[in-house]
Design a protein around this nucleic acid. Sequence first.
DNA 1: GTTCCGCATGAATCGATAG
DNA 2: ACTATCGATTCATGCGGAA
Lengths: 282, 282
Amino acid sequence: MKITTDIRLGDSREKLKSLPGDCVDLIVTSPPYADQRKNVYGGIHPDEYVGWFLPVSEQLLRVLKPSGTFVLNIKEKAVNGERSTYVIELILEMRKQGWLWTEEFIWHKKNCYPGKWPNRFRDSWERLLQFNKNKKFNMYQEEVMVPMGEWASSRLKSLSRTDKTRDTSKVGSGFGKNISNWVNRDKAYPTNVLHLATECNNKNHSATFPSALPEWFIKLFTKENDTVLDPFMGSGTTLLAANRMRRHSIGIDNVAEYCEMVRSEIKSEIDAAVSAAVAEMR
Amino acid sequence: MKITTDIRLGDSREKLKSLPGDCVDLIVTSPPYADQRKNVYGGIHPDEYVGWFLPVSEQLLRVLKPSGTFVLNIKEKAVNGERSTYVIELILEMRKQGWLWTEEFIWHKKNCYPGKWPNRFRDSWERLLQFNKNKKFNMYQEEVMVPMGEWASSRLKSLSRTDKTRDTSKVGSGFGKNISNWVNRDKAYPTNVLHLATECNNKNHSATFPSALPEWFIKLFTKENDTVLDPFMGSGTTLLAANRMRRHSIGIDNVAEYCEMVRSEIKSEIDAAVSAAVAEMR
DNA sequence: GTTCCGCATGAATCGATAG
DNA sequence: ACTATCGATTCATGCGGAA
């Protein structure tokens, strides 16, 4: 079966209306955060953020299948010495729309942004909010547990020197990591904390999150030939992962060159996969 | 100077009223979670939790010094397949009381409780909500620094051209302004994710948090002879840490045997410390 | 083939200064 | 008073080329 990739240029609030209802198995997205990435997107004021997002989530509720899942990657910024409240307000408002707030995963960023301030430390985590339409939804835990071997080993391969140093050190009042516990363990049960680095090596375009992030949720919440939607596609990390994993995908973005770029990357990945397959058959 | 430990038996909502205003430098507490530890605290229904807690936080706002900090360890439980919203509602209500929601730390539990559910993974993190009265508060960041990654030594050995030339003319982050600050630096500031085990060395008492947790916040937000308060003392982890670190402490609990137990543990720790000091002097 | 080293860059935040 | 812009501060990672 051919895997389709549907990329649409435009504002999600409008473009989503053209999709039929109950057509998507998984939504993974990272919308522009309030007042961030102004150069690319407009930049939404924190006070207006909830009102700006609710029309989108209303449409997402419509297009998601009853068995589907919505994963929202977001983090509130610190303004004037205080954390903004628009994210937690959004959770409350989305529940009024009919969403169930099923879970909150944590993305623990290994390499967070540097900086120093008199009243706070570096922010090294983001929220991964899970929403569902029903209490019953598709979840293929085994799929994540099997690749959990890869997951754990790739995590160990890059077990950074810093992690090791801080393990043994008593400085910092006994805080430290003990990831080495994972060695020699075949299967690991995942938890709701994901420990990943941001990919900061993208050439021209800022990747929102590492591809391991959507990959993990795609494995967990979909099977082959299901459909994944990202209404704020950006550089297309979610769509590329979906395509590689043989899931159909729909992406929406209001920046034309992003749409073009993702289209051509998808195409070149397909071409590469085809020629690899051909080479193997000979 | 003698370090005092003040343990009071009773309900926090009442007992806190007997404390003078602006007398506490740091509050660290882990209140009974909704509907849990029923046997001990009677259990508060999730729907009533906010209303139950607000009179306490109102008193805490009164007794905390303007330069002080309130650290609240809490996590919503999953009820009926959904995460309860009482924690985020509490944040919004406490802001109405006058609290600033300064930061949300994550306690990433190394070895969380094993288990498996059809629709969720193990919960391996808890919230550590930081509240303050003022934008300016005491914070001793140097006290909790962690060893820096090894990359630093090689980098500083030969200051790379990028570090020297990188300036704000490029988009975004301006590194390379004051590299001289970095020479001979071997420690880095921590982040807002705390990664430590759920050690419960309290043999037969309801497990709260590991002592490393209050220790870290006591280091960060107080100095010697400051005063630490735990309005839900339980087995006294916070008070014991404060006492060891030579901070005065106040603990409140409505279970008489907890109060007795903490008193006697504090006493035996002091006795042990005294005899160790005497032995050293001989 | 490994390991090592140099390199670029990231959803940042605060305070001061300017309009 | 209130917003907009600018400067200062700060780590850790994965990649690619070299040893």
